[in-house]
């Protein structure tokens, strides 16, 4: 199982480590040709505006959009998978959700806590200037993680989007395994 990590900007190396810890092979995807040979793709945390612009300019946006790669997006990755943020920015628009960026506030409002995750029970959530799902636009979208009444994890077919950073928590590997079992292998 080779999992690619979109390596334009953000915490690429942390995902790399976490993927290895979960027992898979990691590969950085910096350019279009790096998409060759991967079984799934992770879009890491970072700044969604910056990543979106460079994805488009360097052909990754179209290529990823038109591939049938399973994708896991964390934080900025969730934003990029969504159909809208209310702001003018470049998105993949692959999932039937809209998101609210910086939904909890600024960095001083960033937090860590246990959250409920479907089938996994409690998972440690690291939320950094995190987005949350604002609207779900189709019945194909399944909520897999919630923080109180806020939707912080969704799955739609081979796509999965999370508000938080499993790559930064000790038990994050469980989430990668969940992604592989439920989005990649199915």
């Amino acid at each position: 199982m080779i999992i690619g990590i979109l390596a334009i900007q953000g915490d690429v190396e942390e995902h790399e480590e976490a993927i290895k810890k979960a027992g898979y092979t990691a590969k950085k995807v910096k350019r279009v040709e790096d998409l060759e040979g991967i079984d799934a793709l992770i879009i890491p945390g970072g700044e969604s505006t910056a990543i979106g612009k460079l994805m488009k300019k360097y052909g990754l946006l179209e290529k990823i959009k038109n591939s049938d790669l399973p994708i896991l997006g964390t934080c900025a990755g969730m934003v990029l998978l969504s159909k809208g943020t209310g702001l003018n920015q470049i998105l993949l628009e692959l999932m039937d959700i809209t998101v609210k960026r910086n939904a909890y506030g600024r960095q001083v409002d960033s937090f860590e806590k246990e959250i409920e995750f479907k089938d996994l029970g409690k998972v440690y959530g690291v939320f950094i200037r995190a987005p949350v799902v604002d609207k779900i636009l189709s019945d194909d979208v399944e909520v897999i993680a919630k923080d109180g009444d806020k939707i912080v994890g969704v799955k739609q077919g081979k796509y999965m989007a999370l508000s938080f950073h499993p790559e930064l928590s000790e038990d994050g590997y469980k989430v990668y395994k969940y992604f592989v079992e439920n989005c990649v292998k199915k």
Partner: peptide
């Protein structure tokens, strides 16, 4: 819920990596 931890502070810096 924990705020202002080392993990969150260092984590924020990780999110700007490879950027300007």
């Amino acid at each position: 819920m924990k705020k202002g931890t080392d993990l969150l502070k260092k984590g924020f810096a990780k999110m700007v990596k490879h950027g300007v």
